[in-house]
Amino acid sequence: MAKPVVKKEYTLSERIYLWEILKGMKLTWGHFWFNFKACWRPGPHTIPTCWQYPEDRTREISPIFRGEHMLQKDDKGREMCIACGMCAKICPAKCITIKKAKRKEGEEDKYAGKTYPAAFEVDLLRCIFCGFCQDVCPKEAIVLGQEYEFARYTKEECLLDKRKLLLNYRRAKEEGKLRPPRKRVPVVPAPPKPEKAEGAEAKEGKAAAVGKAKKKPVAKKKVAEKEE
């Protein structure tokens, strides 16, 4: 097939190779010289753009980094998880397994809720670190921490059981790397009074299908009001 090739006109400086080549070499020399000077600085983090990873851990990790999981305890040292199973349900990779147990008498200082997980397993080999579990958790019990070194020797070690999850929490607490409390995302406010019946209906578990038709214009209006 005929291919339309419009020849671009080369300027003189482009036509003789050397001029642009020399300009490029000047640029690379600039980088070389800058980094060459930086090389002589002591310490592992010499070149500003590169972290020498195992030695140089000065790069700041975001406090909300989605790293290794942990199970949080509340300020009284009680486990917060109530084994509701929301995280296991929402997990797209199905990597969480929970066994629910009822809190017995005299265990109030150990578990915060009336139920607690007898077993809580997170399969790191399956996890895709989407963070849905911590989003959905009603008690902010399971969170993803800042730990990002996942190399293990055996497959068994990749299975985080409850003990390891709590250990992760303890370590994070000692290192001061706890995740900050979750910020609630502001949601478009509920429809005003006259529409209450509709809202209540929707709350009763009605499918979004019906709610949407009426909710949508309201939501829009609400946003518009906010703007004003």
Partner: peptide, 9 residues
Amino acid sequence: DAPLMARVP
């Protein structure tokens, strides 16, 4: 505090 989420079930 403008909303970031629409009301979805």
